[in-house]
């Protein structure tokens, strides 16, 4: 109890002193608090980093919320949080909010996530699908029209198609519609939606005629219950694997995950150390939480970007 009060006092003191005491602080133990919010997709990774960071800097209080990418950017634009987790890049409107509020920021890539297109193991016909076919199925005009498998490809059976996908509030939905339909947040409405991807897994595995999509990690954990569909973007059908997501041959359904660090927060020693720690450990921690790590060169590029942002030279 007392200890925490001291930590708080110290945090307040450090914050009050600002940059002028930077030199002294660097030789001391790191203290302070870092508030992070944003995407629930990036959350597991940031949580893992925060957990490990606690082992090296036990007196820094790192808290992570999950208001969603959009909700997080709202707080970020008001200067209420230090770092925002984002499963997409910042939108124009959000960017201008930040500019008006005088919030300068640095966008850092931290990992990749693949979107898996899956069917039930009982589905014997669908092994690959083209992006054009996916668009045909999911675009708003398909509502009430594309209802059977043989409408998509002639040799597929004359059976009803049952669609499953994440709810419209999720970043996964935004990303899928952007990549497949061509316009973010636009798709047919007559599909089974759930905010909980585990519900989608259950729905698809028991339905021979189901087709759905969600984060690759949910497939990896349920490989015995689902069948992965290879996606053909004109260069042959590609299955999402660690390799194909990493080298971007699995396109367009792989996406980068980001953290946004505000300039003001990056003036604090503990935030700088946290972000460096994040980039240094993302490679190993990404695997633990089911995402796909960046290559060493990509990580180095992000580290260099961050160093330039805080005005640190090598």
């Amino acid at each position: 109890m007392k200890k925490i009060v001291y930590v708080l006092l110290a945090a307040g003191f450090l914050a009050a002193c600002g940059g002028s005491h930077k030199e002294e602080a660097s030789s001391e133990k790191l203290t302070g608090a870092i508030s992070i919010d944003g995407s629930s997709t990036v959350y597991p990774l940031t949580e893992a980093v925060a957990e490990e960071f606690k082992a090296t800097a036990p007196e820094v209080r790192v808290t992570v919320g999950l208001s969603g990418t959009g909700g997080g950017f709202k707080k970020f634009g008001r200067g209420e949080i230090d770092i925002n987790d984002a499963s997409r890049t910042i939108k124009k409107a959000e960017d201008s909010t930040c500019k008006t509020a005088g919030i300068d920021f640095c966008e850092l890539k931290v990992a990749f996530d693949g979107l898996a297109v899956v069917v039930s193991p009982e589905n014997t016909w669908c092994a690959d699908i083209t992006v054009a076919e996916l668009k045909m199925i999911w675009e708003p005009a398909a509502q009430g029209k594309i209802m059977r498998w043989n409408q998509i490809r002639k040799e597929w059976p004359n059976e009803e198609i049952h669609l499953f996908g994440p709810g419209v509030e999720s970043g996964t939905y935004d990303y899928f519609t952007e990549a497949v339909v061509g316009k973010s947040h636009s798709s047919r409405g007559d599909y089974t939606a759930s905010e909980d991807d585990n519900v989608l897994v259950q729905g698809i595995r028991n339905d021979k005629n189901a087709l759905g999509f969600f984060g690759l990690a949910y497939f990896t954990e349920n490989q015995d219950k689902l069948k992965l569909v290879a996606v053909n973007n004109g260069n042959g059908a590609v299955l999402p694997t660690e390799q194909t997501v990493k080298d971007k041959t699995y396109a367009p359904l792989s996406r980068p995950l980001f953290i946004y660090v505000s300039k003001k927060a990056a003036e604090r020693k503990e935030v700088v150390e946290f972000v460096k720690f994040y980039l240094a450990n993302t490679k190993t921690l990404t695997k633990d939480v089911g995402y796909i790590a960046m290559t060493d060169q990509e990580i180095e590029a992000e580290v260099a970007k961050f160093k330039a942002f805080i005005g640190e030279t090598k």
Binding site: M1, I4, S35, D37, Y43, T46, E47, A50, E51, K54, R61, V62, T63, V64, G65, L66, S67
Partner: peptide, 20 residues
């Protein structure tokens, strides 16, 4: 509570009403 600002990862035990 999520809207008000409750978090998900809190690596400490809250000890006062002003804590996150």
């Amino acid at each position: 509570l999520i809207v008000v600002g409750a978090l998900a990862y809190v690596p400490f035990v809250p000890t006062s009403p002003t804590d996150e």
